[in-house]
Amino acid sequence: MPPSSPAAAPLRVAVMGAGAVGCYFGGMLARAGHAVTLIARPAHVQAIQAHGLRMETQTFDEQVRLSASSDASAVEGADLVLFCVKSTDTEAAGAQILPHLAHSATVLCLQNGVDNADRLQAVLPHHTVAAAVVYVATEMAGPGHVKHHGRGDLVIEPSAAHVAPALVVAGIAAEVSDNVRGALWLKLILNSAYNAVSAITQLPYGKTAVGEGVQDVMRDVVNECLAVAEAEGVQVAGDVDAAVRMIFDTMPGQFSSTAQDLARGKKSEIDYLNGLVVRRGQALGIATPANRVLWALVKLLESKQG
């Protein structure tokens, strides 16, 4: 059964860029009684309008009824916008929602990378834009069908603390942190260690991490990331080694988002993962050869699809 409805008035929620991540969190909020509109590609919208969103999770498999649209104007009237587009599309998608966004709306960035909230805030200078760190293993298993493989928690900035209770009641573990920048860098480090290897091999985390020599490569990647973060004055949140192990332990069957993008012939976010570490390292005079090799190989694979 869905969680009980929240005691406070239901939120009006729009999910901009409702892929696997947006569908999962939007679906969870809809199950809890919030008025959710998913803004997604037409094939997903048609399936959701006809049958609802199928949420196949570790604990339930349901058709969740909510609204869906392929038009950015559907953010109109939303109290909360979950901003889930690819890092490559941040500015363009921000410009699309700007004319329709309520002044009082909170925009929560559920994206990979460390600078999306800053980039989006530049496009939406008069709105509350908050960064969030996302830990969830999901995939779109078909039109209007999201499959959940593990976790489902968020670390959010204090400026979005007012929405945390609604997230928690909806079954989403939401932690408010004063060091979201450090948490974003921790996620960047994990993505840099796992995503490209999963993409290049088209294997899930559990199989890549036990490959011969791969642990050493991952260790080199992590050490380079930490050196760049330290030079930038970032206090990386948490135990990095434990976090790297946790991905292997909790998501062994998950393919990285980068792997999923390449498998579908789509451009990945590699420029904002290993590529960002390379660029920041170059600017700071820090060598990042392991990250550079992984970035270059994924870019080469992307070029094959052109």
Rank of each mutant, 00 (worst) to 15 (best):
P10S: 04
P10N: 11
R12H: 13
V13Y: 10
V15D: 03
G17E: 07
A18C: 03
A18N: 03
A20C: 06
G22P: 04
A30M: 02
G33Y: 09
A47Y: 12
L53H: 05
D61Q: 11
V64W: 10
L66I: 02
S67Y: 09
A72D: 05
D79S: 04
L82V: 01
K86I: 03
S87K: 04
D89C: 02
G94K: 06
I97M: 11
H100D: 12
V107A: 08
L110S: 10
N112F: 10
V114E: 09
A117H: 14
A117Q: 13
D118Y: 13
R119M: 05
L120P: 05
H126K: 14
H127F: 01
T128G: 07
T128H: 03
T128S: 06
A130D: 05
A132Y: 03
V136P: 02
A137R: 01
T138D: 09
A141Q: 13
H145P: 00
H149V: 07
R151P: 00
D153Y: 11
I156V: 15
I156S: 11
I156A: 12
A166H: 11
L167M: 12
A170G: 05
A174V: 02
E175L: 12
E175K: 14
D178G: 10
L186E: 09
K187H: 03
A199Q: 02
I200Y: 12
T201V: 12
L203T: 04
M218A: 11
R219D: 15
V222W: 11
N223F: 08
C225W: 01
L226Y: 02
E232Y: 07
D241W: 06
V244K: 08
R245M: 09
I247L: 11
P252Y: 09
G253D: 13
S256I: 00
Q260V: 03
A263S: 15
K267I: 01
E269R: 03
D271V: 09
L273D: 10
V277T: 05
V277N: 07
V278D: 07
R280E: 10
G281H: 09
Q282G: 14
A283T: 01
L284W: 07
G285T: 08
A290S: 14
A296N: 14
V298E: 00
G306K: 13
